[in-house]
Amino acid sequence: PKIMLPSESALQTISHYLTRLQAADSPLEKLEYLLAAIATIFNSVKTSQLSGSSRSLTLGADDFLPLFVWVLVKTNFVAAEIEAEYMWGLLHPSLLSGEGGYYLTTLSSAVHVLKNFKDSNEENNTKSHLKADSVLKVVVPDELHGSILTKTLPARPHMTTKEVCKIIAHKARITNPQDYALYRLVDGEETMLADNECPQDFMNEGKHVMLAYKRIDAKIAWPKQQQSN
């Protein structure tokens, strides 16, 4: 059966309890506000079938947990984790096997779900794409010491090679940037990038592509990557 989410006014009541929860000092008082908020959720959820008034809606954990996660997001209860920890740490253990313990567990579970939300939606989440886009990793050979450094820089969308070069030159303290260029590395093979190319574009293609910033005349024996996949 489809369920109807709590109304705006119900959310306000819930939010009010959660605010009072945060204002309280006693862990027991906090728990009471948590239970009051939960009772409000239960009382505000209805079945969407108007005809089924005789059939009451049963909310088991399968439905309640996702609903509770939704409520936490809607009420913007960002202190949920620290509040839960506070109660776990200070409430008497005998209270934790009962209803209070159950809903405190539900609160911790909801926090867990939210903290891991990104991972579970990796595939079609634009947010995670943005995240992958927001930094660029560039390898910079250090010719003096014969080593390779990796520089991570913040990147705006559609940054050009020219802009990227400027940032790295600054970061790596290169005084003669005119002698340097940005290269694309695929299996040890270098391709110099033109000023107006956009390095982020091919970084997202998923192949083993790396960016390297080096002196144009420098000859570097790049390690070849195994093409296992």
């Binding site: 209805k46 009451s56 049963t58 909310l59 954990a61 309640f64 209803e99 809903y103």
Partner: peptide
């Protein structure tokens, strides 16, 4: 109560 008006809480039961 079988004629419960509000939603039945069935997540935690004693």
């Amino acid at each position: 109560n079988s004629n419960h008006i509000s939603t039945v809480q069935a997540s935690f039961l004693n």
